[in-house]
């Protein structure tokens, strides 16, 4: 009886704690969503209030590209930025999958000279500060004509997406019993067929998780596009800067822009939630 009461108390405490944690992490998102339906005047009112007349003006401004402020109207290209984000993130992940999956397989299955060193060097891209390479890259990109192009940015984005995919997928390949692949070879299939028909399908959950994570990381990147492109190719993360205007900061539009930019990753994450958690924990254990 005593035990039962204690566990009931423990349950209650756990519920309260979970609610607190949830509030802590979800409140900013909740507040941003609220702000996106408010005018700048409502947002800046002190004290802030939960009661206001919702407006869709912020979204209309973003979608039409026409931002009306107190001092006049301003052209913004937020929808273009959103499109750029989609193009850059998808293309980067696609290229990384194309390069990273065979590389991950090689690292998982074969021991070769300097193999571990190469794998580690690729991983080290994840913890080297981007600013370290940005300035030289800018100069080279201008010389090579890659400045302000999708191709140039997708290339640089490989620093973010490739190591992630390589290391997570490698762990998944290592988990597949080599005997399964051996059996397929003995059946009479070549190594390429074995890779495509056995290894890749069996590592699919890992590939999905890694691709999703890489997509999110690419989507959230700010600094590469800020330096290496103009507004023609810049993603939403950089595009949001346009709302800091001469006549003040357009909090409403920024909030609406954030909500829009959150949606694709949110949808993706919800769709692949199971894979995501699996991939994250595996990456942590296998590293």
């Amino acid at each position: 009886m005593q035990h039962h009461r204690q566990s009931a108390i423990a349950r209650a405490i756990r519920g309260v704690l979970l609610t607190l944690v949830g509030l802590f992490f979800l409140f900013p998102i909740f507040w941003v969503v609220l702000m996106s339906f408010q005018t700048n005047a409502d947002i800046l009112r002190t004290p802030p209030s939960l009661f206001f007349t919702p407006t869709l003006d912020n979204y209309v401004a973003l979608i039409t590209g026409q931002l009306d402020t107190a001092v006049g109207s301003l052209k913004i290209s937020y929808m273009r930025n959103l499109w750029n984000s989609l193009v850059l993130s998808s293309a980067s992940v696609a290229l990384s999958l194309l390069l990273g999956i065979p590389a991950a397989y090689a690292f998982a299955r074969y021991r070769f000279r300097l193999g571990e060193n190469i794998a580690f060097t690729l991983l080290s891209f994840r913890f080297a500060p981007p600013l370290l390479v940005l300035l030289p890259l800018l100069l080279y990109f201008q010389d090579l004509g890659l400045y302000d192009t999708y191709i140039g940015l997708v290339w640089v984005y490989q620093l973010i997406t490739l190591p992630l995919i390589l290391w997570i997928v490698r762990g998944y390949f290592e988990d597949i019993s080599p005997d399964i692949e051996h059996a397929y070879r003995v059946d009479g299939h070549g190594w390429l067929a074995t890779f495509l028909k056995i290894a890749v399908p069996l590592a699919r959950p890992g590939i999905a998780a890694a691709a999703l994570l890489a997509f999110i990381f690419a989507w959230n990147n700010f600094v590469f596009a800020l330096i290496l492109g103009s507004s023609d190719v810049q993603p939403v993360t950089v595009g949001a800067l346009a709302f800091i205007t001469a006549s003040g900061i357009q909090y409403g539009q920024i909030a609406a822009g954030l909500v829009l930019s959150m949606l694709p990753t949110l949808v993706l994450a919800l769709l692949a939630q199971r894979y995501l958690v699996e991939g994250l924990s595996l990456g942590a254990v296998k590293g």
Binding site: H182, Y184, V186, G190, L202
Partner: peptide
């Protein structure tokens, strides 16, 4: 290479292809 040897092998841990039916396994 193993695919050019005219050899069949049954592995101790069976090594069946988990993503294929028994039929597809045998047909491989």
């Amino acid at each position: 290479p193993p695919d050019r040897r005219d050899i069949g092998m049954a592995f101790q841990n069976f090594a069946l292809y988990p993503h294929m039916s028994a039929y597809a396994n045998i047909a491989s």
